[in-house]
Write a protein that binds this DNA or RNA. Sequence first.
DNA 1: ATAATAGTGTCTTTTAGACAATATCAC
DNA 2: GTGATATTGTCTAAAAGACACTATTAT
Lengths: 235, 235
Amino acid sequence: MSYDAAGYPPFAVTVDLVALTVRDEALQVLLVTRGEEPFAGVRALPGGFVREGEGLLAAAERELAEETGLHAGTGAGRAHLEQLATYGEPDRDPRMRVVSVAHLALAPSLPEPRPGGDAAAAAWLVVDEALAGPLAFDHAAILRDGVERARAKLEYTSLATAFCTPEFTVSRLRRVYEIVWGTPLDPRNFHRKVTSTPGFLEDTGRTVADGPGRPAALFRAGATTTLHPPFLREG
Amino acid sequence: MSYDAAGYPPFAVTVDLVALTVRDEALQVLLVTRGEEPFAGVRALPGGFVREGEGLLAAAERELAEETGLHAGTGAGRAHLEQLATYGEPDRDPRMRVVSVAHLALAPSLPEPRPGGDAAAAAWLVVDEALAGPLAFDHAAILRDGVERARAKLEYTSLATAFCTPEFTVSRLRRVYEIVWGTPLDPRNFHRKVTSTPGFLEDTGRTVADGPGRPAALFRAGATTTLHPPFLREG
DNA sequence: ATAATAGTGTCTTTTAGACAATATCAC
DNA sequence: GTGATATTGTCTAAAAGACACTATTAT
């Protein structure tokens, strides 16, 4: 980095959030409806300016909490949060030069955001429908990148558990994979695979019955974060 | 994105480059020696301000060309270039608020940068030695992230060919894997694996002799970019 | 009993890894 | 020839995928 002493062009820096969840048997994303121009009335990813003295991840964490009440981390009431990518084409915002550091948040199914205050226009949308309609700025590309990142990371990490409540069944975890990937998986092979990967799942010793059928064992996410060997989507 | 009309804090935005190559049987990184404070005389990743009206990838491409003469893309005289991650802790630069969008560049072995002009202080360093000595700002963390990204991507993409000249032998490709991963690989199993992955390698029909031993077949990179199934570093 | 879901076992095909054997060069 | 590297082939162990079968619940 060699600085030109004084003269450097000023930028606005924002964080945008691709917040994904599995709700109602579908992959959904949190979107707000813009109240101002440009793109007034059009859906957009939630986001906002990074403040002075605030780090990028901290800004994303603040936005996440403001929109969903969730905090970063693992466990109850927490979401997985990671940096996704940065978008800075010169014309992406017609008003000024804005660089947006997009973050990816994955959370278990959440209730509809409370209608009131800042989050008035926030809602969960099925991802495919969100991508079919118009999105403000370059948010369609950002959303696509976020979904693709999530799909890819299910293959080689234990990230799918971020879409589950702290305790969950193997079926629930399988549904997450099936919904995010859009592919059916063999329940028996899936069960053998996840339970035989050391450190992936931790047995609570308890079971839950949900409708007819044998009650399922309850698991917690284990310590392992990377899967060796990975799960694969295609042969 | 909801803008606060006028008041947003101004940032400087830079691109930093983690330019990696395989030279002299080692993974090497391009570093410059800083001429000014802070960190005068300390090594740093090459980089600079993003200009007005210039995209992030374009800025990285410009920096890459300035420092190495390489352009982005595939083929002769070209390097693979992708965005790595963005670093924006408030105190990462003592002078002002700087957000750096780091990029990863992978190139075949290159000659020493010409000593003269801006690149006066640029040189290829073995990565392990670079990480052992001090690096300016948070560049040690950026370099570590870049190396880890490169190592990971060799597993599930054909990116290793970016470290090779346009035409190369299977041995050369294997040496790339061995050097980047730091693990020896069985030449026979490696050969079978890469030649049997459809679209990975394209046979030129020609061979080259290098020292004693049977001449090796010359290949080009094929059209496939993602490897299914991936190569794995560990069992 | 019947239907539904959970979980185990078994078999086949594919792939990874170890390593023998052959091919083609420099010397 | 000898030594070096390239390439093919063979064998074994591990993993993936298909699917029969048992277990435990609601109705």
